[in-house]
C-alpha cells in the first residue's frame, strides 16, 4: 500500500545476472495506523475546553441590613414560569392590578429588559427575579446570564413569592406557585 520500493528494477547492464538488492525500507503503515488510533483516543478522552462559571452572591441571612426603599414603579419583577416562559410585571402585585406580560427566554426577554431599562433610566432600574416551582435551573441561569448581557447592575434573586403575587400568577397565567 504505502510501501516504497526503490530497490531492484535494473537489468540494462548487459546481461550480467546480479543478486537482487534487498530493500531496506520498512513498511510503516501499521505503525502510522496505530499512531492515529492513539491520537483519536486521546483527543476524545481529554477535556480540552474547561467549563466556565458565573459567580452568584446571595445576601447574608444572618445580618439585617437597612436599605433604602425602592420605588415600586422602577421595579420589574420577573416570574419564571413553566414551559420556558417568563412573566413580568411592573410595580407591586398587591393592589394595582398590573399587566402581566409573557416572554420567552433569549432575544425576546433581552429586548424587554433593554426597553424597560431605557424607560426607567439606567441606574434606577431594578430587576427582581422570582423563580416559581415550575421553572428549571436552566431558566434561572439564563435569566442571570441576561442580566450580565444587558449589564443590569441591580437585580435580586428572590425565592419567596408574596400571596398577592401567587394569586396574580394563578389568575393571569394559570401557574400554581
Amino acid at each position: 500500500m504505502a510501501e516504497i520500493n526503490t530497490g531492484g528494477g535494473g537489468g540494462h547492464d548487459g546481461g550480467k545476472v546480479r543478486s537482487k538488492k534487498q530493500s531496506t525500507r520498512v513498511d510503516m503503515t501499521p505503525m502510522v495506523d496505530l499512531g492515529f488510533l492513539l491520537i483519536t483516543f486521546f483527543i476524545l478522552a481529554t477535556t480540552l475546553s474547561k467549563p466556565s462559571s458565573m459567580t452568584l452572591n446571595v445576601p447574608d441571612k444572618t445580618k439585617q441590613e437597612e436599605t433604602e426603599p425602592i420605588k415600586a414603579s422602577n421595579v420589574m419583577t420577573v416570574f419564571l414560569g413553566k414551559d420556558n416562559k417568563a412573566h413580568y410585571i411592573f410595580g407591586k402585585a398587591a393592589n394595582e392590578e398590573p399587566e402581566v406580560k409573557t416572554v420567552g427566554y433569549g432575544y425576546e426577554f433581552r429586548q424587554a429588559i433593554q426597553e424597560n431599562a431605557r424607560k426607567v433610566g439606567g441606574d434606577k432600574f431594578v430587576v427582581v427575579i422570582k423563580p416559581t416551582k415550575e421553572s428549571t435551573y436552566k431558566n434561572m441561569v439564563d435569566v442571570l446570564d441576561e442580566m450580565a448581557i444587558t449589564k443590569t447592575k441591580r437585580y435580586a434573586l428572590v425565592d419567596q413569592l408574596t400571596p398577592d403575587e401567587k394569586t396574580l400568577l394563578k389568575d393571569k397565567v394559570k401557574i400554581d406557585a
Binding site: 475546553s49 467549563p51 466556565s52 462559571s53 458565573m54 452572591n57 446571595v58 447574608d60 441571612k61 444572618t62
Partner: peptide
C-alpha cells in the same frame, strides 16, 4: 446560606 456561605460559582458551559 444556613452555613453563611453567600458566594459561590455556578458551573456553566461557554
Amino acid at each position: 446560606q444556613a452555613q453563611n456561605i453567600n458566594k459561590f460559582n455556578l458551573i456553566t458551559g461557554t
